[in-house]
């Protein structure tokens, strides 16, 4: 047997002997164990057979607890469904899909293992062969990509004395956008001249939806007359349309910012971008890492947020949405 094969064999033996589980005694479990110890001492000291019987029952419950919780965690498969959008320092919805090939699962709690994400989701009863989606409100402390190494599934079934966990190795990255807040600074001057109706001297002569009718004034454009309404009213009425104003801003995060200053700037740019895009403007981003061309809409906002999230971090920019 080659050393490599011997190593593999030994790793398999170790895995078989020590399944990857972590066992934590709960608060009530600790007291339970202390009482069990006391009953054991009492039985040995007094020789009272009823105490032996009670001790046997208490110890058997510990064993049964271990067996039932192990059965709960066996044949379980987990995958990440992911989150729509994760903003730093605020809870966001995260989903996992969990299924059990054999047997039923009870009181399963899911969370991300070894990650700064806090919060967990739970499922009380997992029937066999059903793909159950577990929702949880997770919170990420800061902006940036969060490396996810695995999903921890924990159960305290059946008596809540022990919390047994199993970590399912599942690599991925969750991109956390900058914290949401209010933009204190003005976005500054728009990048280019007016687009649409913004430059029209007649401010209420927009090209948007119909907002009302009024009498045609001297010198106004006759093309605006609503002839049918004018005929029924016996005077010239004109259509008023909503004014559309779309401008373009390119927001910038200057190079050289670090630490808190960078975080603050990212949050501010994110808030400005959100506000401007909500108002219907086009927003672009200029950072040391690259440039996002100006555009409007929620997809553009997502692009800006993603660029801001990666700012100051190294790593792939394409497949970060694994989670």
């Amino acid at each position: 047997m080659t050393p490599r094969r011997r190593k593999q064999w030994w790793a398999r033996v170790r895995a078989w002997l020590r399944p990857p589980r972590t066992l934590k005694v709960t608060r009530i479990g600790r007291t339970y164990l202390v009482v069990t110890f006391g009953v054991g001492l009492g039985a040995l000291n007094t020789g009272n057979n009823l105490l032996y019987l009670l001790l046997g029952l208490l110890l058997s419950m510990v064993v049964v607890s271990g067996v039932l919780s192990e059965r709960c965690l066996q044949d379980v498969s987990v995958r990440r469904v992911g989150a729509d959008a994760a903003f730093a320092a605020e809870p966001f919805a995260f989903r996992w899909a969990i299924a059990k090939k054999r047997g039923h699962g009870f009181a399963l709690t899911l969370g991300e293992a070894d990650s700064p994400l806090t919060g967990e989701g739970g499922v009380g009863y997992l029937p066999m062969g059903v793909d159950h989606v577990v929702r949880a409100n997770l919170t990420a402390p800061r902006r940036g990509p969060v490396l996810l190494t695995g999903v921890r599934v924990t159960t305290t079934w059946p008596l809540g004395l022990f919390a047994k966990s199993r970590v399912f190795s599942l690599e991925g990255t969750l991109l956390v956008y900058p914290r949401r807040g209010y933009a204190c600074q003005d976005p500054g001057e728009a990048e280019r001249g007016p687009v649409g109706d913004a430059g029209n001297p007649r401010r209420n002569d927009g090209t948007g939806d119909v907002s009302g009718l009024r009498e045609l004034m001297q010198g106004e454009d006759a093309r605006r007359i609503h002839w049918r309404k004018s005929a029924s009213a016996g005077k010239l009425l004109r259509v008023e349309r909503e004014r559309e104003e779309r401008r373009t801003w390119v927001l910038a995060v200057v190079a050289g910012l670090e630490g808190d200053a960078l975080e603050r700037r990212c949050e501010e740019v994110a808030a400005l971008a959100h506000r401007l895009i909500e108002e219907g403007h086009e927003v672009g981003l200029d950072t040391a890492d690259g440039r996002v061309r100006p555009a409007a809409g929620t997809a553009q906002e997502r692009r800006v947020l993603r660029a801001l999230a990666w700012l100051g971090h190294e790593g792939p920019h394409e497949d970060e949405e694994a989670a």
Binding site: F106, A107, G122, Y125, W157, P158, L159, G160
Partner: peptide
């Protein structure tokens, strides 16, 4: 105890699977 453990894991508003718990 078992019902308490399952209750804690069931999201608020969803029923507790009492019958399924009893058998195991």
């Amino acid at each position: 105890l078992a019902l308490g453990v399952v209750e804690a894991a069931v999201p608020e508003g969803e029923p507790v699977p009492v019958r399924q718990v009893m058998r195991p």
